[in-house]
């Protein structure tokens, strides 16, 4: 039954989503093609062509970013419409538990978000790695001292960073859907402000929580130096891994927690006036 629920939930907004997916895929292909072309042109000494082609991955990154924003808006609107508008009166009068209805919608939305996040990540990676300024860009994004550590342990860091990218997108999605679920209980004129408040409030609290836990766990790695605390280079891998793993655990906890609270609200409180 869950498979059928997910299938129909994915189908419900598939027309708009496939258009967005097509735009993202075209951007990705253009980005990869231009990236390869740019590197080849640079190797041939044709700097002008290389620089021109370099602009395409930048443009693709911008487009996929905009697509991701549109996707989020479309998902939030679709979530509200499917569950809490009159359409919800059909969704919740099927012989299926309310928890299953919510779970399938959440899974369907998470699949969409994961696919687009991966595409976005891929396009950004092409932009960064093929750019003539890639060295500077990577150093700025990752940190100069951490770069060799990641390069040496790609097999460990790559899946972790990919998992982090997806889990963090999904946790953001579930917080927003929890905010929308809360909003469904609130009178119309306070809905929006309540939803926004809950979303940003929860994000801030969780960010502080993840930072605090990471700091506490990594504190023993620091050394006292010149009257201050400093992280020795040898501790960098442990530090970065701890930060990523803590973020992963917090975000996974957020996903489970947000779903359970939403389910509680949908089961106990939700009514269609």
């Amino acid at each position: 039954m869950l498979f059928k629920l997910i299938f129909h939930d994915m189908l419900a907004d598939s027309r708009r989503r496939f258009i967005l997916l097509a735009i993202s895929l075209v951007s990705a292909v253009a980005s990869i093609g231009a990236g390869i072309g740019s590197v080849a042109a640079r190797a041939d000494g044709n700097e002008q062509l290389s620089l021109s082609l370099e602009l395409i991955p930048y443009l693709a990154t911008l487009i996929s970013g905009v697509v991701l924003i549109i996707l989020y808006i479309s998902i939030y609107k679709g979530f509200h419409r499917a569950l809490y508008s009159t359409e919800g009166q059909l969704a919740f009068t099927r012989p299926v538990s309310r928890g299953a209805v919510l779970l399938s919608k959440t899974i369907a939305d998470s699949i969409w978000i994961s696919v687009f996040s991966l595409l976005n990540l891929g396009i950004s990676t092409v932009m960064i790695t093929t750019s003539s300024a890639s060295g500077t860009l990577i150093k700025e994004l990752v940190g100069e001292s951490l770069l060799p550590v990641i390069a040496e342990n790609t097999a460990l860091y790559l899946p972790l960073l990919l998992a982090y990218g997806i889990i963090s997108s999904v946790s953001g999605l579930l917080i927003a859907e929890l905010a929308i679920t809360f909003g469904a209980l609130i009178p119309r004129n306070h809905k929006l402000i309540c939803g926004i408040g809950i979303f940003f409030g929860a994000r801030s609290v969780l960010s502080v929580l993840a930072d605090t836990v990471s700091t506490v766990l990594t504190l023993p790695l620091y050394e006292l130096r010149d009257g201050g605390m400093a992280l020795p280079e040898s501790a960098l891998p442990t530090h970065s891994l701890t930060v990523i793993v803590v973020s992963l655990i917090v975000d996974t906890g957020v996903i489970v927690g947000a779903y359970l609270i939403s389910r509680l609200i949908v089961n106990k409180k939700l009514s269609f006036r």
């Binding site: 419900a12 499917a82 009159t86 059909l90 009068t93």
Partner: peptide, 14 residues
């Protein structure tokens, strides 16, 4: 039990 509400509730499945 089959229920039909007083407002349209048909999702746009295509």
């Amino acid at each position: 039990v089959a229920y039909m509400p007083d407002r349209p509730n048909i999702p746009d499945f295509g």
